[in-house]
Amino acid sequence: MDSPAEPNEGDELSGESLPELLRSWRMRTDPRTISGLATSGRRGKGLTQRDVAHLTEVSERWYGSLERGTRAGYSADFLDRLSSVLRLSRAERHALYLRAVGRPPALAAVPEADAAAEADEVLQEFLDNQAPNPAFVADVAWNMIVYNQPLVDWFPWAAHQANQMRWAFLSPEAREQLVNWEHDWARPFLGQIRYERARHPGNEALRELERDILEGSPPAREMWDRREMVEHPDGDVRRLALPYHRGREVAVRIVALRPMRSDRLRVIVLMEDRRGGDST
């Protein structure tokens, strides 16, 4: 570790130090809004350093060094995970980078971090108001940024492995829970991935998503050669057989839309369609 970080003469930020900012952002974050985080027995408000370390997948010592203002080789990946955990605005994320590594973030290189900053309280309220229908907001690489409680009730994995496509192709349970997996789910999903890769050829998250799925799923590799493209699933009716429904097949109509203020976000709502499902 090097010496504590001091603002450079050319920094765009003045005032609060990095430790002051991080403590403030951490203490304002309500642990009850983070799925999978234990909240019973807490004595104070906000997140602890241990919470943040766990959620950003680093050691408590590593995160503590950052919060003490120690300058080190903090990666963009770590700082972006931290921005998402603390739900920083775009301006706050900018300030985090300046204080932690002495430069602003490369916005174009990490669209998913920008997307996370744009998923604000209004979108969360919108998702919550969709109950009992599961709903979530994802970035262009299908990383789930925010979601409502019914989504986690139906898909518990979303609280831990929050990428829709990786679950669908790399989790064995998905083949059972997504009814008619190959035709109704896998092929349209691959078509969406191919379409977004064509739209965003320089997006590293999409490139990694394609690579991971094709390396990890032999059926996906075979279907990929069909070169199908699908723009969106809006209006499609598909079937699920989830433990939440005790294995009973349920038909859902997919509502897919984008907020007008962002081209990085997609909103998905799964509306139970009793006309197409077994409601017994």
Rank of each mutant, 00 (worst) to 15 (best):
V179C: 03
V179A: 06
V179N: 07
N180R: 15
H183W: 14
H183F: 13
D184H: 00
D184I: 06
A186Q: 02
A186C: 03
A186Y: 11
R187V: 14
L190G: 03
L190W: 01
L190V: 06
G191E: 02
G191F: 01
Q192V: 11
R194E: 05
E196R: 13
E196N: 11
E196K: 15
R197E: 06
R197A: 09
H200W: 13
G202S: 08
G202H: 12
E204Y: 07
L206M: 08
R207F: 11
E208Q: 14
E210T: 14
E210M: 14
R211Y: 14
D212E: 13
I213E: 12
L214G: 10
L214C: 10
L214R: 11
G216H: 05
P218L: 10
P218R: 13
P219T: 08
A220V: 09
A220G: 02
R221A: 15
R221Y: 01
R221E: 14
E222S: 08
W224K: 09
W224Q: 05
W224P: 07
D225Q: 15
R226L: 13
R226F: 07
R227D: 15
E228L: 06
M229Q: 14
M229I: 10
V230D: 04
V230E: 08
V230Y: 11
V230C: 03
E231A: 12
H232M: 09
P233R: 14
G235Q: 09
D236I: 00
D236R: 10
V237Y: 00
V237S: 12
R238F: 05
R239A: 07
R239Y: 04
L240I: 08
L242Q: 07
H245F: 14
G247M: 07
G247Q: 07
E249P: 01
V250Y: 06
A251R: 07
A251E: 06
R253T: 08
I254K: 03
V255I: 13
R258A: 15
R258V: 01
R258M: 08
S262I: 05
S262K: 03
R266M: 03
V267A: 04
V267N: 03
I268A: 11
I268H: 10
D273L: 00
R274S: 09
R274Y: 15
R275H: 13
G276P: 00
D278M: 06
S279Q: 12
S279I: 07
T280M: 08
